[in-house]
């Protein structure tokens, strides 16, 4: 069953790369966070697929459940930040956040 591992690795890598590419190319804050979510999907697929291919599915399952709980907490914090930023700057554009650079 080792082929399954490379199979999931392939798809997980595609998802993670898509997310990172989205992070680099997008400008809307919410879009950026959707890209983060795509990376998170890649990670959970990677964890569970690894467990499945290596007969460790129960441990992998607990890891994915924990990962999802962390994700919820992270999403809540990030979206709260985005709402606050939108209230103050009336915009969701990452380029308008450039004030801090330098």
């Amino acid at each position: 069953m080792t082929n399954t591992w490379y199979f999931t690795l392939f798809f997980a890598a595609a998802l993670i790369f898509a997310g990172i590419l989205g992070l680099l190319l997008r400008r809307n804050l919410i879009k950026l966070f959707i890209a983060i979510e795509v990376i998170a999907k890649g990670i959970s697929l990677l964890l569970l697929g690894t467990g499945f291919a290596k007969d460790n599915i129960l441990v992998a399952q607990t890891l994915v459940v924990t990962f999802i709980v962390v994700e919820v907490s992270l999403v809540a914090t990030a979206l709260a930040l985005i709402i606050n930023i939108a209230r103050q700057t009336k915009s969701l554009d990452i380029r308008k956040l450039a004030r801090l650079k330098g």
Partner: peptide
Amino acid sequence: TIALTKAGDEVRE
């Protein structure tokens, strides 16, 4: 979040 932040101007991608 999308509903709450709609007031802002459109982000030109």
